[in-house]
């Protein structure tokens, strides 16, 4: 039923309304930007993900504001919000069912965090996702891909669901690396670094506003964007923003160059380019890339996708889908960054 509503919404949405939605998207970006300073690019990417209806994985150092950013964005979106902490003893059932002993001494089973709000669940925030076990990651696969789950002998659908997850890159003990299939279902994997500008660092350290994250997040107006209309808006964006044959060719060239970097003339020091990439850059990844690029073009006020849009979102949407030969995995970050940098330096556009 919810899907039909989405289709209807698309039909009713006029282009004029889309530009109104763009105003709201920029407004949301601005409000979140007041809370998280010095991370304009990350916030822009997060906005793109929201309007592309994609799940986001944030990673970075401890204490750079990953959780605060996601909470602020969730508050701006409105709708039901649920949060789960990844721990080593968390089991899939804990996310679906809540079991306890009632006052009368009988065991009770009630809906857990994922299905408590039913279809209204908008943001499912998974903190420290790499601390959860692989069983939990598998549960997420279906939740993210199909936005549905089976519990109490029925199907639950979550048409507005966005999964936000974060993990820190520092600790490796008692953590579980996300399986490739799960990572492939995230639209973006965004890396948050400590802001480099001295002024931003000074403000973050000395301005008391940033000391209390709860009050900070309350500064974001709740429900700036109506989460119930998001699927319709997202579909309208995908339908309205055009891609030309030249851009399609460019995208395919990029795809080919990622899979066979040596044929595109990409060279990285100390790397055998013929053996570097063993797989990845899946068709799903490419379709995600185009989805994100369309939203990026829309946020820039264009009705066509240009190579700059692809470049703006390429690293975050594609880097985690490129699988390297095992001997290069340890140097992965540096290699993939250089690979994508050279990719855009070498593949001709238009």
């Amino acid at each position: 039923m919810a899907r039909e509503e989405g289709v209807l919404a698309v039909r009713n949405l006029q282009t004029a309304e889309l530009s109104g939605w763009r105003e709201r998207a920029l407004e949301l970006e601005k409000e979140v930007g007041k809370v998280i300073v010095g991370q304009q690019r990350v916030i822009r990417l997060l906005t793109i993900a929201i309007f592309a209806r994609g799940h986001v994985l944030l990673e970075g150092d401890v204490g750079v504001g990953k959780t605060t950013l996601l909470r602020a964005a969730a508050r701006g979106l409105g709708g039901a919000y649920e949060r789960v902490e990844g721990t080593i003893d968390l089991m899939p059932a804990d996310m679906i069912y809540h079991t306890y002993i009632g006052e009368d001494g009988r065991p009770r089973v009630e809906p857990g965090p994922v299905i408590r709000y039913g279809g209204d669940l908008t943001v499912f925030f998974f903190n420290e996702i790499n601390r959860a076990r692989p069983q939990v990651h598998s549960l997420l696969l279906r939740l993210m891909a199909e936005r549905s789950i089976s519990a109490f002998n029925r199907e639950y659908h979550f048409p507005y669901l966005l999964v936000f997850a974060d993990r820190n890159r520092i600790e490796r003990e008692e953590t579980f690396e996300l399986p490739a299939a799960a990572r492939d279902r995230f639209l973006m994997e965004i890396n948050i670094a400590t802001p480099a500008e001295p002024e931003v660092r000074r403000v973050l350290a000395f301005d008391p506003r940033f000391h209390d994250s709860d009050r900070l997040i309350e500064a974001v107006p709740s429900g700036m964007v109506d989460h119930r209309e998001l699927p319709g808006v997202a579909a309208a964006i995908q339908r309205t923003i055009e891609t030309s044959p030249d851009l399609e060719r460019y995208t395919l060239d990029l795809w080919q160059a990622v899979r066979a970097p040596d044929s595109a003339g990409i060279e990285i020091d100390d790397v055998d380019m013929q053996r570097l990439v063993i797989g990845g850059a899946s068709p799903r990844g490419m379709s995600y890339l185009l989805r994100a690029a369309r939203v990026s073009a829309w946020l820039d006020g264009r009705n066509m996708v240009v190579p700059e849009d692809l470049r703006a979102v390429f690293f975050e949407t594609m880097a985690h889908r490129i699988f390297l030969s095992p001997i290069y995995e340890l140097r992965r970050d540096a290699i993939v960054q250089e690979l994508i940098k050279q990719l855009f330096a070498r593949v001709p556009a238009p």
């Binding site: 240009v306 190579p307 700059e308 855009f344 330096a345 070498r346 593949v347 001709p348 556009a349 238009p350």
Partner: peptide, 13 residues
């Protein structure tokens, strides 16, 4: 475009 690319040593968008 190709002339710009060569002059810059990378693709210029």
């Amino acid at each position: 475009h190709r002339a710009f690319d060569v002059a810059a040593g990378r693709r210029v968008l």
